[in-house]
């Protein structure tokens, strides 16, 4: 004879079938939650600090002697969302080329980080910044002024790139 207990109901003990003790157990479980630390982060006051591996808003690196970018256009070329527009200009300095115009359309950017990978000068990197909402679409198109960021602020990301880029 096949006496196997096939359904959940058949496998339950009498105490479990009576239901009330199990309800009490369940209530005890939720009561214990009362004393556990809460997961909530109080966002505007308490902000998360991203690690070096985080890909936030792409920015242009500014060293002590000015911008690194040489306006080669590789980032604009590789960008799958066509978010970057570069126009080159020329100077008499040793580093002859500079971007006369550099725009990133943040409405198009998908944070893939290809621009950063393609860049031969490590001039465009993904910053840890993730707070950049705007009230109008025009303001979401960032020009060179808005993109240039001192290298000190991007230290972690630059360290990360030194360690892992092109491996």
């Amino acid at each position: 004879m096949n006496n196997r207990k096939n359904t959940e109901v058949e496998r339950m003990s009498l105490a479990e079938k009576a239901y009330l003790p199990e309800i009490a157990r369940g209530l005890g479980l939720t009561l214990r939650r009362l004393f556990r630390p809460k997961m909530t982060r109080q966002y505007p006051e308490e902000r998360w600090q991203p690690l070096g591996s985080y890909r936030g808003r792409p920015v242009l690196v500014k060293d002590s002697d000015g911008e690194r970018c040489v306006a080669c256009g590789l980032c604009a070329r590789v960008c799958p969302a066509l978010a970057i527009e570069v126009q080159a200009g020329e100077t008499d300095k040793t580093k002859e080329r500079y971007p006369a115009k550099f725009e990133i359309n943040m409405l198009r950017c998908i944070y893939c980080g290809f621009c950063e990978e393609a860049c031969p000068e490590e001039a465009i990197v993904m910053s840890p910044n993730y707070v950049f909402t705007t009230r109008s679409r025009n303001k979401a198109i960032l020009d060179k002024e808005a993109l240039l960021t001192p290298a000190e602020e991007l230290k972690e990301r630059l360290e990360f790139l030194k360690q892992f880029k092109n491996q």
Partner: peptide, 8 residues
């Protein structure tokens, strides 16, 4: 509900 779900 929040407290039981580890929220505020």
């Amino acid at each position: 509900a929040g407290i039981i779900q580890d929220r505020l």
